[in-house]
Amino acid sequence: MIKNGYSWLIQPYQQLATSILHDRAHHALLINYIQGSGEDELIEQLANRLLCQASSDLAPCLKCHSCQLFLSHHHPDFYQITNEQGKQSIGIDQIRSITAKVYEKSQQGGNKVIWIKHAALMTEAAANALLKTLEEPPANTYFILSDDHNSHLLPTIYSRCFSYFLPIPKLEQSMDWLKNKQGLHYSDNELASALLLSENAPLTAKTLLDPTKWQQRKVFCENLLSVIPNHDFWTLGVTFEHDHFIDRISWFCALLSDALKAKQKAGRYIINRDQVPLVRLLATLSYEKITALYELWLNARRQLLSITGLNKELLVYYVLSQSELICD
């Protein structure tokens, strides 16, 4: 039923597909997820089932003409909308274009499915244009809106949808998938660390465990071990590759958070389980210094994510110099 061995998606799919099987599917489904938990796979399977014209089961038949069109990515009644390349939002023209089509007759004589990916990127005007269609949906037309769990849709859109949060698998299940299904040869502590750094989203953890990426984190942690005793943060600057500022800042924030947990005798909750000596070293700093460092680096991360055109290198060196001042 679920391809690619994403076993944790079986139960969510069954829950959502049951309503399709019994003709009780809501015309507007909102799926929130933690990125990297197999959300695209789940939505594509649901869309396939909605468009299938021969199945009498939870899964699409994969054999009818409609399924064959979907599998070849040429189904004329399946529409996918997201922000266009180079743009930060989904505009009203995109929504108007699609809403005009959904009132037309289905080309395959079955359902029509519209998937709005990263739905929170809709401008207010675009969301309001969609709202009119959601209030009076045409027959046999289904909308699937999806976005990260931290995103925010307009309350009016939210209220017209059936909301579903895609659960992430348990840590042990994800570790088993990475180890036995993906054949990744890492220690249990390394696998657990990658997952916890990825909010336990298996696909994001798999990306982090790419040998090149994982080695970058390892080197960054080794550099911290030599930098922290002398508070010589400035020397870290040369290790901050331009395209990976966010990664290193995020990694350091997670380590600082772990150091705070260690100081509060809550070590069993640490994320960086493969970097215990580094966490203990950071925990030798005072509570006030760790907190100040955490707030400094976290604020830098927020700026990098929210301000376009920001001079990243200048920001990083500012943060490094301020870190030295905090620790002196």
Rank of each mutant, 00 (worst) to 15 (best):
D247A: 11
Y186K: 09
T204G: 02
K213S: 14
A192N: 13
M175T: 14
S187Y: 10
P155F: 00
L255M: 05
Q173T: 15
K218F: 07
F165I: 07
C161M: 07
I228H: 08
N189Y: 12
S226N: 13
N200S: 14
D243N: 10
A205R: 11
F233L: 03
T204I: 11
F245S: 08
L154W: 14
C161N: 05
Q215S: 14
L166C: 08
P229E: 03
F240N: 07
W234Q: 12
S257H: 14
N180L: 06
Y164K: 06
A205E: 07
L236P: 05
L184G: 06
E172G: 03
T212G: 01
P211I: 03
S174C: 07
S151F: 02
C221T: 13
F233H: 07
H185G: 03
S187F: 05
S226Y: 09
H242D: 14
I144A: 00
R248K: 15
K213H: 14
L171F: 12
Q173L: 11
K170F: 04
N200M: 13
V238S: 15
S257K: 11
N180F: 05
P211W: 01
H231R: 12
H149A: 09
I246W: 08
V227C: 07
I168L: 13
S159R: 15
K179N: 14
Q173E: 15
K181Y: 06
S163H: 15
Q215I: 01
H149K: 11
V219C: 01
D232W: 08
Y158W: 10
D148E: 15
C161Y: 06
R217C: 00
P229S: 06
V219G: 00
D243G: 01
V227L: 01
D247H: 11
V227H: 04
I249W: 09
S159F: 03
T207W: 08
L166Y: 12
G237F: 08
A192H: 10
T235F: 05
L154H: 14
K170H: 10
W177Y: 13
S151L: 05
P202F: 07
P167A: 07
L196C: 14
Y158V: 00
S193E: 12
F245Q: 04
L203I: 10
H231E: 02
S159L: 02
K170W: 03
Y186G: 04
A201H: 10
F220I: 01
S257P: 01
P229F: 03
N180G: 02
R160G: 08
P211Q: 04
E222N: 10
S198Y: 12
L145I: 00
F165N: 12
K181T: 11
I157E: 04
T207E: 15
K170I: 06
R160P: 09
P155Q: 02
L255P: 03
N150I: 00
T156G: 04
A254N: 11
